[in-house]
């Protein structure tokens, strides 16, 4: 047998990324999530922009409403897309291939995260015709549209990281879904809770809430670096936690 000497490359993240993205494109689940999100986005957009109850609204308000609705749907889609990422591998036994290959856990986590983020972003970009309809028929700035989509990507990424973390904890996708929903739900609920409790707890809740203060800027077309920093930090935290769990479980 002729030996093919392995030439070591630094592309493990890219290899995992391509496999996982391919898995979304080959599985019905990816299309079901995409179709559901696009359908609901479309219905909600119709209801508030074109429907009988639309009323007299400024174009900017309609666009902000679109991003508000899309952010919730993006979060739900992110949970649905991310729970399989590690749990499924453990369930089918393919995790053993990764565990016994010369690939580092952070490379696996990053590759999986980026693939889910790419797929989620593609779904979100498929809604682009809705803001463009407003852009054509009303008066909104392109910057508002771009900022809104940046916000959707950031909040989607943060929830994907939560989902990936939950998926790394277990081999059961249902358990991962419950964990991811619980953590994401709590992060969402912190905003309304911050309005009920008094300071200083309310400040902490508002600062930690995944929606509310941090998404309001993106929704309205306002770019604040602190909001970007919040989502990046949240994403990093959960990806780091997921990596640590993968490292611990790799040897179990």
């Amino acid at each position: 047998m002729t030996a093919a000497q392995p030439a070591i490359t630094a592309g493990a993240t890219g290899v995992v990324f391509r496999r996982e993205l391919g898995a979304y494109l080959r599985s019905p689940m990816g299309y079901i999530v995409a179709a559901t999100v696009l359908l609901l986005d479309g219905l909600l957009f119709y209801a508030q922009a074109l429907g009988p109850s639309a009323g007299e609204r400024l174009s900017g308000q309609v666009l902000a409403g679109f991003f508000y609705n899309a952010s919730g749907l993006t979060a739900i889609a992110a949970v649905a897309l991310s729970i399989r990422l590690v749990a499924e591998e453990r369930q089918t036994g393919t995790q053993l291939l990764l565990d016994t290959s010369p690939v580092r856990d952070w490379e696996i986590v990053l590759g999986k995260f980026l693939s889910a983020l790419a797929f989620l972003t593609a779904i979100n970009l498929a809604t682009l015709y809705m803001p463009l309809l407003i852009l054509v028929n009303g008066k909104v700035s392109l910057a508002h549209v771009l900022t809104g989509y940046l916000g959707l990507t950031l909040i989607g990424g943060a929830v994907l990281a939560v989902g990936l973390f939950a998926s790394a904890l277990t081999r059961h996708q249902l358990v991962a879904a419950a964990t991811a929903s619980l953590v994401t739900g709590t992060l969402f609920l912190l905003w309304p809770l911050s309005r009920i409790v008094g300071p200083p707890v309310s400040w902490v809740f508002a600062a930690l809430a995944i929606h509310g203060r941090h998404f309001a800027g993106f929704q309205s077309g306002l770019f604040h670096l602190r909001d970007v920093a919040y989502y990046v930090a949240l994403t990093y935290f959960f990806l780091y936690a997921a990596t640590k769990i993968m490292e611990a479980k790799r040897w179990e």
Binding site: A4, Q5, P6, A7, I8, T9, G11, A12, V15, V16, R19, L97, L98, S101, P102, V103
Partner: peptide, 12 residues
């Protein structure tokens, strides 16, 4: 995929 994840180059 198995080859790539084990560190082989695309050509290999």
């Amino acid at each position: 995929f198995a080859g790539r994840i084990k560190g082989m180059s695309q050509e290999a």
